[in-house]
Amino acid sequence: MLGVGAYRTRNRPARNELLPLPIGEMSWALTDHQGRSVRPKDWAGRPVMVFFGFTWCPDVCPTTLSDISLWLEDLGADANRLIVALISVDPERDTPVVLADYVSNFDPRIIGLTGPAEEVAQAAADFRVTYRRVDKDGGDYTMDHTAGVFLFHPDGRFVSIIDFHEDRRFAVPKIRRTLS
């Protein structure tokens, strides 16, 4: 299935629209929680694990980050080359400073990424991620968003998604397969 997705002609990519692009074909430009600019090409040659979320989210996002932190502890130094990134779908509130505060609660290998709304939209399009703002009473809002964790090989090829409700015991072996 992935083989079909990777096939393309010079002009027009012919692939499953539901699969994330290979990292090397993505075109977003974001800023990490330390204020450094990050582009897809910066991840060349490294295995990658990405998920989308926002720091105002009290349930799904800290749960995912707690899980990821446990997986990283399990993997130990083997995961040191793995890029692990939370991409905010709420750049209006998630500035780099806010993200820095947030990710400091979890494994130090996890980075936060944010940027202008159009760059976040570009990242979501490249990863085939959906998100939308849901307004609440009193001017507050929350975000619905794709909850899976995306895995990519060091060569940038998409490998698989760890679903939010998937049996989390399968996660570590899945990640390990992307490391080699």
Binding site: T142, D144, T146
Partner: peptide, 11 residues
């Protein structure tokens, strides 16, 4: 209630 439908989480 956190609900995940078609991979998208909402509450």
């Amino acid at each position: 209630e956190t609900v995940v439908q078609d991979g998208i989480a909402s509450m």
